[in-house]
């Protein structure tokens, strides 16, 4: 198969998605923007969680850092979110490098990384809630400027929608491009067998820290987008356990370590949960998260590789039967 095909597929699907505003009402456009935000975040998490196989449960921390950085800088210094974005990237990179270094330098991994990351993202909720300059428990409202490129704001949803499509297309192209890079092969080696990777010259500590930084920075970018869309940040809406779990559930349901899995997961689950919330949220608060919990349990029990993982396995079995030789190492999604 053509090496360029996966890129073309991403761009074409992205372009087709851009037609959606012609058909959708405002309520569904809102859901579409949410799908894009969470798909982007899930793709970002997929780098550390899916490809590098490290159990980061705290990516809400980086999303929160991104969201709070732009909100605070806009609120305090009237700083354009474009500059805020740069600050967000720098801060999240520092945090992700620090956390990665703390955990990975002594080869502490697995559940330990999961515990430390979930503890830190939860801790961030309590810390931020206690800092008046960041709005405390109530969070921060951001000033609305109408259609303004300088303030990265749009009147109505379409602007955000196109921005979201751009971001998701960008991250998909990035992952697709990285798949054929030494760094990604090394990440997968780390995931598959760390001792063997080390013995073959892979600096596993450095690879994991780099993956954590990449994933963290991209989550911060997602956080910036989130803040710009809602023009509000609150401790529990961008930090914390629930947000972190939301980030990774789409990737897991869609298929860990696959290019499209996080997007597929978000496309299926975000509308489902938003409609659940709209229908039942008032009479049954928590129905949305109950749904997430149920989906997680059922996925792990009955479809542990996620949708793309399942599709991939079915595809492989089918190929096995119909052809004797598999020539293409590019076409498959999972590695």
């Amino acid at each position: 198969m053509n090496l360029k095909a996966p890129y073309i597929r991403i761009v074409v699907i992205g372009a087709l998605i851009c037609l959606l505003p012609l058909f959708l009402s405002s309520f569904y456009m809102h859901i579409a923007v949410l799908v894009l935000i969470w798909a982007f975040l899930a793709c970002a998490w997929n780098i550390i969680g899916g490809y590098a196989g490290q159990h980061s449960l705290g990516n809400g921390l980086y999303m929160g850092i991104g969201a709070y950085a732009v909100a605070f800088l806009l609120d305090r210094f009237n700083m354009t979110p474009w500059l805020g974005l740069v600050v967000a990237i720098a801060l999240s990179a520092g945090a992700a490098a620090f956390i990665g270094w703390i955990v990975f330098r002594y080869a502490l991994k697995g559940a330990y990384f999961a515990l430390v990351t979930i503890a830190l993202t939860e801790a961030a909720v309590y810390v931020v809630s206690n800092i008046p300059a960041l709005g405390g428990a109530g969070g921060m409202q951001m000033e609305y400027h109408g259609n303004s490129l300088y303030y990265m704001q749009f009147a109505g949803q379409n602007g955000y929608f196109f921005m979201g499509v751009l971001l998701v297309v960008f991250i998909l192209l990035l992952t697709q491009w990285y798949r054929r890079k030494r760094f990604f092969y090394q990440l997968i080696a780390v995931r598959e067998n760390e001792d063997a990777a080390e013995a073959l010259g892979v600096d596993t500590v450095k690879a994991k820290i780099k993956a954590n930084v990449m994933s963290g920075v991209l989550c911060a970018v997602g956080g910036v987008f989130y803040a710009q869309y809602f023009l509000y940040v609150g401790p529990r809406s961008v930090f914390g356990e629930v947000v972190s779990v939301q980030i990774l559930i789409y990737a897991i349901v869609g298929g860990l370590g696959t290019t499209w899995g996080p997007v597929v997961g978000a496309v299926l689950l975000v509308p489902l949960s938003e409609i659940t919330r709209a229908q039942l949220g008032n009479s049954y608060p928590g129905s949305q998260l109950l749904l997430y919990g149920g989906v997680m349990v059922l996925t792990m029990l009955f479809m542990p590789f996620g949708i793309m993982g399942l599709a991939e396995r079915l595809h492989q079995r089918w190929q096995h039967r119909s052809t004797t030789q598999v020539v293409d190492s590019q076409g498959g999604e999972a590695s």
Binding site: Q186, I188, S335
Partner: peptide, 18 residues
């Protein structure tokens, strides 16, 4: 100590990337 979920070629590529 193989990398179980990738192909034999990809296994060896990890070494080649040195």
């Amino acid at each position: 100590q193989p990398f179980p979920d990738i192909t034999a070629t990809e296994n060896v590529m990890i070494g080649a990337f040195v």
